[in-house]
Amino acid sequence: MEKTKINITDEVAIHISEMNKWYGNFHVLRDINLEVMRGERIVVCGPSGSGKSTLIRCINRLEEHQKGRIIVDGTELTTDLKNIDKIRSEVGMVFQHFNLFPHLTTLENCTLAPIWVRETPAKEAQEIAMEMLEKVKIPEQANKYPGQLSGGQQQRVAIARSLCMKPRIMLFDEVTSALDPEMIKEVLDTMIQLAEDGMTMICVTHEMGFARQVADRVIFMDDGQIVEQNEPESFFNKPQSDRTKLFLSQILGH
């Protein structure tokens, strides 16, 4: 059953080749090829419905791909549940709508997975959680419930919750889209800090300022395909494809 051996060095965090996905008959992702190096910061942008969220959700198997291969951190995503749980515990994900657990306090949100998945002793898990909450600058909210926090605070807790699993890769799915303008900055600042610490990150976002500042590579997707990718400087100043030019003119135009 061994498929063609793909030569992957330790430097590759995520390897995606010839990946295709359909929702019923609708072809959402078409022949995606992507290699993400360790420590690389990638920003994925594109019009809505272009498949960018679906792409990163495939990386931790929240969506199943039907064709092609995805190898995360040396482990291939197959139907094997053990592999899926292993990859999910190594890959952190932050969502547009935070998805904090409303019945648990901030601290409990952060310690839940380390205690049950990593089997970290409760005391140690709490120490790690406080450390991460300090990193996102809200240790004073540790004993509040998510419903008592502002949107920006909730999103930072969500980031801390992912970090508590000590992930090697972080996925950000439009994490600032549901926030009020004055809260976007606090979340972006947290992400910038994370990027400076050397985390491997894939961010789906419309924040082009953030892309310019931290991205090593910007990927533009349209109609389920990767249309263009480049380093931010060239991507923004000299876009090659017409679709990219149109998209950039629409979001930067005003």
Binding site: N60, S89, F95, L100, F101, H103, W116, R161
Partner: peptide
């Protein structure tokens, strides 16, 4: 319950029964 609760607990690596017991059921029962 919003679908996001399932996704968030899955993305943290909780197994099906763990996420039912620790995340989904406490909220659904409430």
């Amino acid at each position: 319950l919003p679908l996001g609760q399932h996704e968030a607990s899955a993305s943290l690596g909780l197994t099906y029964w763990q996420s039912q017991r620790l995340v989904i059921m406490p909220q659904a029962l409430k």
